[in-house]
């Protein structure tokens, strides 16, 4: 399994907001255990998708010069279930940003239905204490090739 919890960016306004989608499929192995006979997208993975959307929004603001890691989730609220066949839309707004990190507010919708909302704080790992000597670029992007999801639009269009 690759740790991608968004499928594609649909909008990106640099330094302001980003919107990404995640299509939920019954082909995803974990849905058969969560739960047997009642497949629902785990909230923790929705939160990961929200963090990936917000983290890339923050990273892009700084041209991916920092290693952006999820540091804290002060608030998260879930309002409903997401089932196979649903398309989740994550909308992240950049609220704060400084050399040490940033914070975003993210919502998750299926259609017009609000599924979840969260406040997420990221840290720039390369700017903090013990990790200052790291000189690599953001590993999510260099290894995973996740940047391709930022090509806003449809493949082949």
């Amino acid at each position: 399994m690759r740790w991608f919890w968004i499928d594609r960016f649909t909008e990106l306004q640099s330094g302001q907001y980003a919107r990404a989608i995640k299509n939920v499929s019954l082909a995803e192995e974990h849905l058969h255990d969560h739960f047997p006979g009642f497949a629902v997208m785990p909230g923790s993975l929705m939160l990961e998708g929200m963090a990936q959307t917000g983290g890339i929004l923050l990273g892009e603001k700084n041209n991916f010069e920092h290693i952006v890691v999820l540091a804290k989730v002060p608030n998260v609220t879930f309002h409903g279930f997401v089932v196979p066949g649903d398309t989740l839309t994550y909308t992240a707004k950049l609220i704060n940003e400084n050399p040490e990190g940033g914070s975003v507010e993210v919502t998750a919708h299926v259609g017009d239905r609000l599924i979840a909302e969260a406040e997420i704080i990221f840290s720039h790992l390369d700017q903090s204490g013990d990790f200052k000597h790291l000189d690599q670029k953001n590993f999510v992007f260099s290894i995973g090739g996740l940047l391709s999801v930022m090509e806003v639009g449809k493949a082949g269009s």
Binding site: A71, K72, P74, I95, N96, N98, P99, E100, G101, S103, I121, S123, S128, G129
Partner: peptide
């Protein structure tokens, strides 16, 4: 440690101030 960044962000918002690193 990470809470300090959170506190900085919230103070900036609640008091409408900027807090340089």
């Amino acid at each position: 440690s990470i809470d300090f960044l959170d506190i900085v962000f919230r103070l900036e918002k609640n008091f409408s101030i900027k807090i340089p690193r």
